[in-house]
Amino acid sequence: MYGLAMAKGLMVTLKNLTKKPTTVQYPEERVKQHPRFRGEEFVWYEERCTGCASCAKYCPLGIIKIVTSPSETAPKQGDKYRLEVFDIEIQRCMFCGLCVEACPYDCLFMGSGFEQGKYSRKDMVLHVEDLRQADKHPSTFFRPQLEASGYDPRGGRPLNWREVGRESWRWHQQEKSGLRLEHSPVDTAGSQQESN
């Protein structure tokens, strides 16, 4: 029958009237992001950072600016630089996460938020003070130790610098000591310094 397909189309649209709309009303509710979301509010742990500037070297857009000077903190570990300037220009950041991938000390993490909009271009730069005070809910992007521990930045508690590194992660320890297991254990209750 000729018009049956058209009538079926009309029924589909009519059924939509009975379903609940999927709109998220923005200022009152926010869409929940997933744990590996590469968000704007970078999470930086100053205690772990040595000032190596790998993140600045790896950034494809060159928006990270790091100025360091020699210092004598942590002389036993081989010295850390004193960081004077650490700027991330989020107005041109494309949130690719290469800086996070580059960091050898697990001190830079992507954030989990998306609301850093400002009214002028000068404010769209994260200085070292902003990074120090930022909200410490790191995204689990490129950090398998956080993911293996089941951390969820959306609802979890803020993490401190001792908990976020890979040195306490069981898989990593066994990898470093040359002991390879057949499958990688996902350690949810492994070492004593893990987060929940």
């Binding site: 649209t13 939509n16 009237l17 379903k19 709309p21 999927t22 709109t23 009303q25």
Partner: peptide, 8 residues
């Protein structure tokens, strides 16, 4: 139209 498109 919004309700037909499953939105408000």
């Amino acid at each position: 139209l919004g309700r037909f498109h499953n939105r408000i």
